[in-house]
Design a protein around this nucleic acid. Structure first.
Lengths: 214, 214
DNA sequence: GATGATTTGTACGTATGTATA
DNA sequence: ATATACATACGTACAAATCAT
């Protein structure tokens, strides 16, 4: 792995996790010192991150961590809902019998954390559940695009579960999705999944609004 | 505009248009000589293109133009159909009255090239038509994602119009989409648009298959 | 399989443009 | 408003790895 790869991966992780606040000026010199490299690999990393939209690159003025307004977040959830819905549509058409069983199984494993109200474990089980649907769609570009938007929303996705009653609602929505996919009812699977992810966004929205109050 | 921007844009254009064949080795030194710069801006450009998936970057072995199999193309059209459908869905909900009129106007301007069988002019008018729908959805991320997939398909998109009867069919499909958006019937707009783009892909597929025959 | 040529990955110096006092 | 300080954009140099003979 080249130094540029390493720096790029490290910065991506910190930005996505929110360790590097939006608007923060990313100074090439300081970063180079921090990673113990010259400025060249740092520059390459910043270029790649700019393409992903994680940093903004202003010519002659350096790079800053890209800021995300609440409006942008709402739009991203809307796009994600559409994309995950599409994946569910094709998954309902193309999943093998084994995959449908595995999905049902993953759903069952959400039950215990849901009744216990265990945020972290439910979040983990929820991610596995959605990943199975993604992989069932048999379309690498669709998967890639969906994961890209999901990555951007990762810091906010977990917020939703702090919203009262969200976990129970989420679990119930999963149930209906599993049934639709089992029956191969692709339009229904798409509708339900789109609504499900939109609910996630609305719940996250509420938490952001609550946080910004003094 | 920095030199890296210029090199990046130029290479992107040539790759997307197919002037640089897939698998072609992109030599940093030669490119630098060609653009009259040092290798540094060329390296930055290659890094950016790699993130877009237009070139493959093999460590210590340089960059090659990324190849696209027919299967990948089919998947991309499928993803594009889903995305453009989503845009149409939200456009039907959110477009202003003026925008709906403008869309109708753009559709009218497809008529003459369609009856004349003028590929190039129809292609141009078609692009404007679809762009209006995109912009009407009021979701920058969705627009961005859609344009990204469209860029990847650009070289193949034009192929469809060489398929017999495709222009007439395309024009008819537009008609129905315009009506659905005018009436604010978002599910219908989405369904029709998705089918429309899927037809584009099938037509392009046929042409690729025809081309590969001896 | 070894050696030479080519090419990549990295470091660093310089000039130019931006921000600040 | 001018000048100063500073960070970026680009070029050049060199070492290490790959490839071609």
């Amino acid at each position: 792995m080249s130094l540029a790869d390493h720096v790029s991966a490290a910065l991506e992780r910190e930005i996505v996790l929110g360790d590097l606040a939006p608007g923060l000026h990313l100074d090439e010199g300081s970063l180079a010192a921090r990673f113990g490299t010259s400025r060249t690999p740092v520059r390459e990393a910043l270029n790649r991150l700019a393409v992903c939209g994680l940093v903004e690159l202003r010519p002659r003025r350096g790079a800053v961590v890209a800021g995300v307004s609440e409006e942008v977040m709402t739009q991203r959830f809307e796009a994600l809902a559409g994309l995950e819905g599409l994946c569910a549509y094709y998954a309902a058409l193309r999943m093998t019998a084994e995959e449908r069983l595995a999905l049902h199984d993953a759903h069952r494993r959400c039950r215990a954390p849901a009744s216990a109200g265990d945020y972290l474990r439910y979040d983990a089980a929820d991610m596995i559940f959605h990943r199975l649907i993604l992989e069932g769609c048999r379309n690498d570009i669709l998967i890639e695009q969906t994961l890209a938007v999901r990555r951007l929303l990762k810091p906010w996705r977990r917020l939703q579960f702090y919203s009262a009653g969200r976990i129970e609602a989420s679990y119930g929505e999963h149930e209906a999705i599993v049934t639709a996919i089992r029956d191969g009812d692709s339009p229904q699977a798409e509708r339900l999944t789109r609504a499900h992810v939109n609910h996630q966004g609305q719940a996250a929205d509420r938490m952001v609004a609550a946080q910004s109050m003094p």
